[in-house]
Simulated assay, not measured.
Amino acid sequence: MKRFTRIAVLTAALLASLTACVSAPTGPTIAIMPREGKPFEVFQQEDQVCRQFAADAVKDTSNAALKEGATSAAIGAALGAAAGAVIQGGNHANVGTGAGVGLLGGAAMGAMNSAGKQNQAQTQYNIAYQQCMYSKGNQVPSYAAPASGPSYR
């Protein structure tokens, strides 16, 4: 029974570390430059507004990634425990081993699924941030700054 307790503690620690790995984008991964003549203080204010806009745009996607990772790990642990019990005729020590192996497999699947969702969230964040900064007249990669806009000279 001690072995089962150790595996349960390990399972809880692994689930905690898995959920800690998944997080919302903390900022853009693209470089935006201010239009020529725009004061840097104005650019910084626009940057803060656009970061908030982009964070609001991906809130649901980031939460989905976190839930998917934890759910996959929990399902893997349950299936592993069931498989461990069936394979060794219901011996409780093998249930714990099966749960541990299932948790590792579930955690790996959850990490892959949530990594994909996290990449999707970062891409959506970058697009929202880019659109916002472009609308404020800043230079966005592959796009020229809008010709119209306020003059800062």
Rank of each mutant, 00 (worst) to 15 (best):
T11P: 05
A12W: 04
A13S: 05
L14T: 09
L15C: 08
L15I: 08
A16S: 10
S17I: 04
L18M: 10
T19P: 03
C21T: 10
C21P: 03
V22W: 05
V22N: 03
P25F: 01
T26I: 01
G27N: 04
P28K: 04
P28N: 03
P28S: 04
T29P: 07
T29G: 11
A31Y: 13
A31D: 13
A31G: 04
A31T: 09
I32M: 07
I32Y: 14
M33N: 12
M33K: 11
P34A: 11
R35P: 12
R35T: 07
E36K: 07
G37S: 06
G37E: 06
F40Q: 08
V42Y: 06
F43M: 06
E46D: 14
E46A: 06
E46W: 13
D47T: 12
Q48L: 11
Q48W: 11
V49Q: 05
C50M: 06
R51D: 14
Q52F: 11
Q52G: 09
F53L: 09
F53H: 12
F53M: 05
A55S: 13
D56P: 03
D56C: 02
D56V: 08
A57P: 02
A57I: 03
A57N: 05
V58D: 05
V58A: 04
V58M: 10
K59G: 11
D60A: 14
D60T: 14
D60G: 04
T61E: 14
T61C: 11
T61W: 14
A64S: 15
A64L: 15
A64D: 15
L66T: 14
K67Y: 15
E68A: 08
E68C: 09
G69Y: 05
G69F: 09
G69A: 07
A70C: 10
A70M: 11
A73V: 04
A73Q: 03
A74E: 09
A74H: 04
I75A: 05
G76C: 02
G76D: 02
A78M: 04
G80T: 02
A82V: 10
A82K: 03
A83C: 06
A83G: 04
G84I: 07
A85S: 11
V86N: 02
V86Q: 09
I87L: 08
I87S: 07
I87Q: 07
I87W: 10
I87C: 05
Q88Y: 13
N91E: 12
A93I: 12
N94Q: 07
T97C: 05
T97H: 03
G100M: 00
G100N: 00
G100I: 00
G102H: 02
G102T: 01
L104S: 00
G105I: 01
G106K: 01
A107N: 00
A108V: 00
M109C: 02
M109H: 01
G110V: 01
A111G: 01
A111S: 01
A111I: 00
A115N: 06
A115Y: 11
Q118A: 08
N119D: 15
N119W: 13
Q120E: 15
Q120M: 14
A121C: 11
Q122P: 08
Q122E: 14
T123S: 12
Q124C: 07
Q124F: 10
Q124M: 12
N126P: 12
A128V: 07
Q130D: 13
Q131P: 03
M133C: 10
S135F: 13
K136A: 14
K136Q: 14
G137R: 10
N138E: 14
P141D: 11
P141Q: 12
S142R: 13
S142G: 13
S142W: 15
Y143D: 15
Y143M: 15
Y143F: 15
